[in-house]
Amino acid sequence: MLNEEIVIKTNKLTKTFGDFTAVNAISFEVKSGEIFGFLGANGAGKTTAMRILCGLLSPTSGEAMVAGYDVYKENELIKKHIGYMSQKFSLYENLTVRENIEFFGGIYGLSRKELKEKGNDLIGRLGMEKEANKLVGSLPLGWKQKISFSTAILHQPKIVFLDEPTGGVDPITRRQFWDMIYEATDAGITIFVTTHYMDEAEYCNRVSIMVDGSISALDTPHQLKEQFETDSMEGVFLKLARQAKRGE
């Protein structure tokens, strides 16, 4: 499903807090329908970069376009065209599955009718007909994460940002979760994902690795492994992360 339309483009994007440069002149492009892995050790500046792209933070300098909108002036428009799922679990525990879907769909402006249809459709696809009216708090973590991802793409955003979506989940559920991600790309949604699991990095079309606020490597997993002469993404990551001077 890859085509050449570019949905994220940054040019020397920089963010400083006081005299600390969290993100240092990063430039990259993400194509429509791509799964773009955004890797880096803790404190490398991933979260800050992601917050800028989501329209939550204003950059200090440089340029960035997301879904065709400028991060300086059109961040409210960006918010309409992206989905977001954070590493912290992000559904309301004392709302039912259906209420969560309807609420989060609702804040992206879906009509009541659309919500009903999409909600039913989604619950059917997840096979959660029995659990639809149960409180989310009573469900296992893996299920919550699947619902969380599904609600993040319910309004069919151009791009969905996933911030360590599979933290604390067992390998089987992680595998299933990635199946859902592939399905979403089939529907034309671009995935921008951060992760600490190197096997997940292998699933990405292209991977960038941030070290100390800068992007030190960006390519397909296959090319990266050749470039750094190892047989796993873990090897690539370790070689790069060892250069880091910044602690956590």
Binding site: K79, Y84, M85, S86, K88, F89, E93, F104, I107, Y108
Partner: peptide, 13 residues
């Protein structure tokens, strides 16, 4: 604390 605030803030709300 639960992280839902972040979701609300990235939404168009």
């Amino acid at each position: 604390e639960k992280g839902t605030m972040e979701i609300l803030l990235v939404s168009p709300m």
